[in-house]
Computed example of a mutant assay.
Amino acid sequence: MKSLKRMKIAPLLISIVFAGCAGSSGQNVIGTVDSGLATVGRTAQTGRAVIEAGKAAAAGVPVTQTGLTNALVNQLGVSPQQALGGAGAIFQAAKVKMAPEAFSSLSQTVPGVSDMLAAAPQVSQPLSGATSVLGGVGSTVNTMTSLAASFQRLNLSPSMVNQFIPVVVDYVRNTGGPMSATLFQSALTAP
C-alpha cells in the first residue's frame, strides 16, 4: 500500500518541481512545491477520513458519528458502541429538558443526533416523584441519575458521565456553533 502511494505521489512531486524550475524565480519553485505539498496533505487527510469511516462502519457505528465517536474512544478509552450510546444518552437528557423547538434546531445543526438517540439505552426516570419535592435540584439530580443508569447499561461507570459531557459539548460547539453548545450544556446542568 505504501509503495502504491509513493508511485502516485512521486509523479506529482516531479511535475511540481519541473513546473517550478521552468518559472523565472526561486519563489515560484517554492510556491509551487508548497502548493503541491498542501494538495498531498489534503489527499492524505481525505484518505484517513475514508479509512476511519470504514473502521466505524465495520464496528456498527453510523458514518455520521465518526468524529464524536472517535473523540470519545480516543480520549476516554471506551468502545465505539459505548461512545455512541453514551453520547445518545446525553442528547436524550438534553432533549427532555429543552424546548422542542430548541432541540429540533440543535439536531438540525449537529449531524447524526437521531443516530445517537437511537443508540441510547432506554431507562425509566428513576426519581420522577422527587422532582416535585426537590424543585429544580431534583430535576438536575433526576437527569444525572438517569444518565448514570444509561451508562451502567452500557457497561460504563456512572462516573464516566462527567467525562463524556465536556467531549460531547465540544462536539456540539464545533458542529453547531457556540450558541448551540451553550443551550445544550445549560439543558444538562440547569435545574
Rank of each mutant, 00 (worst) to 15 (best):
M1E: 12
K2L: 13
K2I: 15
K2Q: 09
K8H: 12
L12R: 06
L12C: 02
L13Y: 03
I14S: 04
I14H: 08
I16Q: 02
A19I: 04
G20D: 06
G20W: 00
A22Y: 13
S24W: 06
S25P: 01
I30A: 15
T32P: 00
G36S: 08
L37Q: 11
L37K: 06
L37V: 13
A38L: 12
A38V: 04
T39M: 10
T39Q: 12
T39F: 07
V40Y: 10
G41W: 06
G41Y: 05
Q45S: 09
T46F: 10
E52Q: 13
E52Y: 06
E52H: 07
A58K: 14
A58H: 10
A59Y: 06
T64M: 12
T66Y: 07
T66F: 07
G67H: 03
L68Q: 01
L68F: 02
T69K: 00
V73N: 05
N74C: 03
Q75H: 12
L76A: 10
P80M: 06
Q82W: 04
L84G: 08
L84D: 09
L84V: 02
G86A: 05
I90D: 02
Q92W: 10
A93V: 01
K97H: 08
P100T: 13
P100C: 02
P100G: 07
E101Y: 03
E101C: 00
S104T: 10
L106G: 00
S107E: 15
T109I: 01
P111W: 00
P111F: 01
G112T: 06
S114H: 10
S114K: 11
D115I: 04
M116K: 00
M116L: 15
M116S: 13
M116I: 03
M116N: 03
M116V: 02
A118N: 15
A119V: 08
A120F: 10
P121V: 11
S124Y: 11
Q125V: 09
G129E: 04
G129Q: 07
A130V: 09
T131N: 05
S132T: 11
S132D: 09
S132R: 11
V133P: 02
L134S: 01
G136V: 10
V137P: 00
G138L: 02
V141N: 05
N142K: 00
M144F: 10
T145P: 02
F151Q: 04
R153I: 03
R153L: 15
L154R: 08
L154T: 11
N155V: 03
L156F: 07
S157D: 15
P158G: 15
N162H: 07
N162L: 13
F164K: 03
P166N: 12
V167I: 14
V167A: 09
V168A: 03
V169I: 14
Y171W: 12
V172H: 00
V172L: 05
R173L: 08
N174D: 07
N174G: 08
T175H: 05
G177W: 10
S180P: 01
T182M: 15
L183F: 05
F184C: 07
S186T: 14
